[in-house]
């Protein structure tokens, strides 16, 4: 029965979208989009226009997004506290290949994530993507060795300092150029397509990358060691 319902829902959605999509696709840019497209590179200096929009033109929304991410991870961490007294089946330890491979690959994966968020203003990517890749590197270590515990104090400190630095960058914009999270006055715009360019955008993205990476790593650690046990535990 569920299969039929799923199939009918998919067909209905396809029909609706087939009719609606040509209506919604405009043929020329609106006024705001045209300003971004024409003046984005000149005003911000970085070659990735999406990063300029996310961090500069819509920087305040990104601050809200970082707050939402922090709240969700904090909520999950609060709900999944470790409870004592539950039986957990002993896992089979990972094989030699997985353990050695994880230790060897952890550093290049973290380096790759750092590359993504440091070059956020030049290549596609940025803070959120780079932070997710860094958290995947930490996940590699957690998968290879289940009893590894991450230093939660250090991760919490790193995350809080990064979030604080984001607001500090905004206040520096307020002090130097007159508006919160302004880009022009704080750091020089530099020449196009160089690493040291685009004002304070790379600094903000580095801070976001560190914050997201440490947040997601702490969340993965909490989830793996949370109480709950296996499905059989719930039936006993």
């Amino acid at each position: 029965m569920k299969q039929i319902v799923a199939l009918v829902a998919v067909v209905l959605l396809a029909v609706v979208l087939w009719r609606l999509v040509p209506l919604a696709a405009p043929t020329q840019l609106g006024p705001v989009a045209r300003h971004y497209a024409e003046w984005g590179v000149a005003e911000n200096g970085g070659s990735n226009l999406v990063t300029s929009i996310v961090v500069n033109y819509r920087g305040f929304d990104t601050l809200g997004e970082v707050t939402v991410l922090f709240l969700s991870v904090a909520g999950a961490g609060f709900v999944l506290r470790r409870r004592h007294g539950l039986v957990v089946h002993e896992p089979i330890p990972a094989s030699e290949i997985v353990q050695t491979g994880a230790r060897l690959l952890f550093a290049p994966v973290v380096l790759f994530g750092a590359y993504i968020f440091v070059h956020g203003h030049l290549t596609p990517g940025g803070g959120f993507q780079g932070g997710a890749v860094v958290a995947s590197g930490v996940l590699l270590l957690l998968l290879a060795d289940r009893d590894r515990h991450l230093p939660h104090g250090f991760l919490g400190l790193l995350e809080s300092l990064s979030g604080f630095s984001y607001v500090l960058a905004g206040l520096a914009g307020l002090w130097a150029a007159g508006s919160f999270l302004a880009n022009r006055g704080v750091l020089p715009l530099g020449s196009w397509n160089r690493l040291l360019s685009a004002g304070i955008i790379p600094v903000i993205y580095m801070v976001i990358g560190l914050k997201v990476g440490s947040e997601l790593a702490a969340l993965l650690d909490v989830m793996m060691h949370a109480a709950g046990g296996d499905g059989e535990e719930a039936h006993r």
């Binding site: 596609p124 993507q129 996940l139 993965l220």
Partner: peptide
């Protein structure tokens, strides 16, 4: 695409 890759590939 990179966001979808970074989140959907492992995490």
């Amino acid at each position: 695409a990179m966001t979808e890759a970074a989140i959907g590939a492992g995490l």
